[in-house]
């Protein structure tokens, strides 16, 4: 067991105690901090279902040791803050455009596109495709996800 450490997730400090040093950030989020929105789809950084933002950088939580994220500002799907209303423009666009099917890849995609639109408010289709190149979806065929990204960008600029 390692010494207790603290993780800053969605603006809140969480104490992690009695953990093993080898635990991934994904594991700690899901199993220790009660944040199962990030999904474990492959554990090798191929599917992007566990995408989180660490100090402003989009990362696969399965590839980061939790203890290495001490002192970082971590945002998960649970911590995405709406500008107004109950959910963000990306989340709203995913529902309205029909970009959600089984939903297992959805949290990672929502986080990835939130990260993109924070950096690039009016992305081209190619920039959207590059932004979600690390996210696999087995249900939708991606077309509605690309449409949702553009709808979210438009909605954000209309606000």
């Amino acid at each position: 067991m390692t010494d207790p450490y603290s993780l800053t997730v969605n603006g809140t400090d969480h104490q992690v105690v009695d953990a093993w040093l080898g635990e991934s950030l994904l594991y700690v989020l899901r199993e220790r901090l009660g944040l199962p929105g990030s999904k474990a789809g492959c554990e090798q950084g191929e599917c992007g279902s566990c995408s989180v933002i660490v100090d402003g950088s989009l990362e696969c939580a399965c590839l980061i040791l939790a203890a290495a994220a001490v002192g970082c500002d971590i945002t998960t799907v649970e911590g995405l803050q709406p500008g107004r209303g109950d959910f963000t423009t990306v989340q709203e666009a995913f529902i309205a455009e029909g970009a959600v099917q089984c939903g297992f890849c959805t949290p990672g995609l929502v986080v990835a596109l939130t990260d993109l639109l924070a950096r690039v408010p009016h992305p081209s289709d190619l920039e959207v495709r590059e932004a979600i190149s690390g996210n696999l979806c087995r249900c939708t065929g991606y077309g509605r996800i690309l449409a949702a990204a553009q709808a979210a960008a438009k909605a954000a600029s209309d606000e």
Binding site: G37, T76, V77, L80, F87, Q91, I95, A96, G103, P107
Partner: peptide, 11 residues
Amino acid sequence: SRIEGLSKVTG
């Protein structure tokens, strides 16, 4: 639109 969409996009 999908009824459970909200719960899926928010995790």
